[in-house]
Design a protein around this nucleic acid. Structure first.
Lengths: 201, 201
DNA sequence: TGTACATCAGTGAACGCGCGTTCACTGATGTAC
DNA sequence: TGTACATCAGTGAACGCGCGTTCACTGATGTAC
């Protein structure tokens, strides 16, 4: 049970986060500053320190929220699809998110690095709210069904799938951002081709 | 014929560029400043304006030099290899460069975006000193040999290959930077698998 | 070869800017009795 | 229900910092005759 005060506090916190995200989306990943966030909310810069201890904390929260949204987009893909289609659709969801939120996507990966010990040796001890986890689970489903058995460990296979979609996403969000090219079609074919390659006997 | 003065001028310019690259390599992509470059060369900050008109010009030159190095690494791969091996080796050269120069690689792609009109409609009018061009040429060689004919236009196919290696490179240079994982092995398998998928009948 | 002059390479100080953060403060909101 | 007090939410001014860039300048290098 939370008091009205606590709820208002949380709402303001969310408003700060939303403002930060909106600014990244509109003005680009590198233009974020406490002062501009405060200005957008008609706050004084000092006021934000009631809700976050530092700029770093805001960045972390923004990244974490972005990760949640990305994973949610991937979780929209029905797991009931045949494995091949499921993998392709998962990848396209990832890239579509990046295409729709290019600056946000770039920001997320510019400001986060997995600490040295965090990569799991096995596929079990993974955080639940992670795109990579979703991918790994799909790959393991395929392996248990007897598919994808020739392409290395589930970690390796999931990594290579991730690399492909992350490359498409990154290129479209940054370097090829303004290039008129039918990426959606090319991405689909690439994913299909790759998954077919992984599944070959 | 260049005068000694011109040659010294050029040497100093190169020294500035080298210092900038070294700083990116050592301190990371976002720490670059005119003042620090000058300090490293025992110059006053104002002195750099004899050689570059702005910080932007230095960044451009640094990116351009990085691109040259990357392309050179790719051109080391003997084109005489069988196509499949050649494509795999090209991709691995790209990723290896990124792994060996993670901050430089990240810097290059953070600070460059292809302008709207620059993506070629066909594969001809491409700049010669570009990794993408090398890739396209390899793909077209394959198509002329009757391979790779089922995987879309040469542009599409080259793009998807690029996306895969760029994803591996980007992940290893940033997000997964400190993760202890045998990327070289995984990358090799992924490349082989992908190329095989592209070549399937 | 010597001299007068022009150009070059680099300095030092200053400019204005936006930034994250701190701090003493104040009015508003909530709580206890 | 009223009052005294504690906590909360937010302000305004200031801090020191590093930044890119400009500008008047000066000694060194090169050139012309």
């Amino acid at each position: 049970m939370r008091t009205p005060r606590e709820r208002r506090h949380e709402r303001t916190r969310d408003a700060i986060l939303s403002a930060a995200i909106e600014m990244i989306t509109r003005e680009g990943a590198d233009k974020l500053s406490l002062r501009k966030i405060a200005q957008r909310l008609d706050y004084s810069p000092a006021g934000l320190y009631e809700y976050f201890g530092s700029k770093e904390e805001i960045i972390d929260a923004v990244c974490s929220e972005g990760n949640t949204r990305l994973v949610n987009a991937m979780k929209q893909v029905p797991a009931s699809l045949p494995l091949e289609q499921y993998l392709v659709a998962l990848g396209l969801a990832y890239v579509t998110f990046a295409r729709q939120n290019p600056d946000y996507f770039a920001f997320m990966f510019m400001n986060r690095a997995i600490p040295p010990e965090a990569m799991p040796g096995s596929a079990d001890d993974l955080p639940d709210d992670d795109g990579f986890t979703v991918l790994i689970q799909a790959v393991e489903r395929g392996q248990q069904a007897g598919l994808l058995t020739r392409s290395g460990t589930s970690l390796e296979t999931a990594y290579s799938l991730w690399a492909l979609v992350h490359g498409m996403a990154t290129l479209q969000a940054t370097y090829l951002r303004h290039v008129p090219f039918d990426f959606a079609a090319a991405d689909q074919r690439a994913m299909e081709s790759f998954v077919a390659g992984l599944m070959r006997e």
